[in-house]
């Protein structure tokens, strides 16, 4: 027995870490998807001046390391604006924006991929702009978007591990703590890795089911 061995209490520690990771993941996913959709809609309707800004910002977010984004938000913004920010706030802001950037691309191509004929048809039947969006564009875009979105979210779940670096007590941070205390890196990181793995698999599985269900309903609606 070297250092301090594992205790039953460590299970609770792990569960707490997992809870923080999942809560942050779910929160940032909801915000990110909403924001991404909003950006895609603004982009779609060519609101003056918005397009270039949206494109530049999302490209910057997609093409720079999330760790640097986290540092910019957590260390940079408070120093620049002289405000206080907790690690959880910084993590939520960063990961949400990051998810939004990736989701934006999916939603945009989802909207673009819809057959123009159908929009034309809707116009012929006398539907208004918002009705076209709600009845024609949105359901189809959703069906197109689910597959890629699930891929993005599986990736974002893993990205959340980076928030441990700015001091959020997520699953990875718990791994750090157990690693330091027990000095059993193989066991600790294998267990942590396994938990992430199972979470990713569960997420992908759920996504697959949603996708299948949506495709079915869109097919039915398309007749």
């Amino acid at each position: 027995m070297r250092y301090a061995d594992f205790t039953p209490y460590d299970i609770i520690l792990l569960l707490q870490g997992l809870g923080v990771t999942l809560a942050l993941f779910v929160g940032t996913t909801l915000i990110g998807l909403f924001l991404g959709l909003l950006l895609a809609i603004v982009h779609h309707y060519r609101i003056p001046g918005c397009r270039p800004v949206i494109v530049v910002v999302t490209e910057a977010l997609k093409n720079s390391p999330v760790l640097v984004q986290l540092f910019l938000v957590f260390f940079g913004i408070p120093a620049f604006l002289h405000i206080r920010m907790t690690p959880v706030e910084a993590a939520t802001l960063t990961i949400s924006l990051n998810t939004a950037a990736f989701a934006f691309v999916v939603f945009r191509s989802g909207i673009e991929s819809i057959d123009r004929d159908q929009i034309e048809a809707a116009k012929v039947f006398g539907l208004g702009r918002s009705q076209i969006l709600r009845l024609v564009i949105a359901p189809q875009a959703a069906a197109f978007a689910v597959g890629p979105l699930v891929g993005i979210l599986v990736n974002q779940l893993q990205v959340t591990s980076l928030i441990s670096v700015i001091g959020v007590f997520d699953l990875t941070k718990i791994g750090n703590i157990l690693n330091l205390r027990t000095l059993q890196p193989f066991i600790v990181w294998a267990v942590i890795g396994l938990i992430y793995y199972l979470a990713a698999k569960a997420l992908a599985h759920a996504g697959g089911r949603i996708e299948a269900a949506l495709r079915k309903s869109v097919k039915w609606g398309g007749i």
Partner: peptide, 15 residues
């Protein structure tokens, strides 16, 4: 592909 890179990195670095 399903385990965060940070966790993989710690696994190797400490392991």
């Amino acid at each position: 592909r399903n385990v965060p890179f940070l966790v993989q990195l710690f696994f190797f670095f400490y392991g």
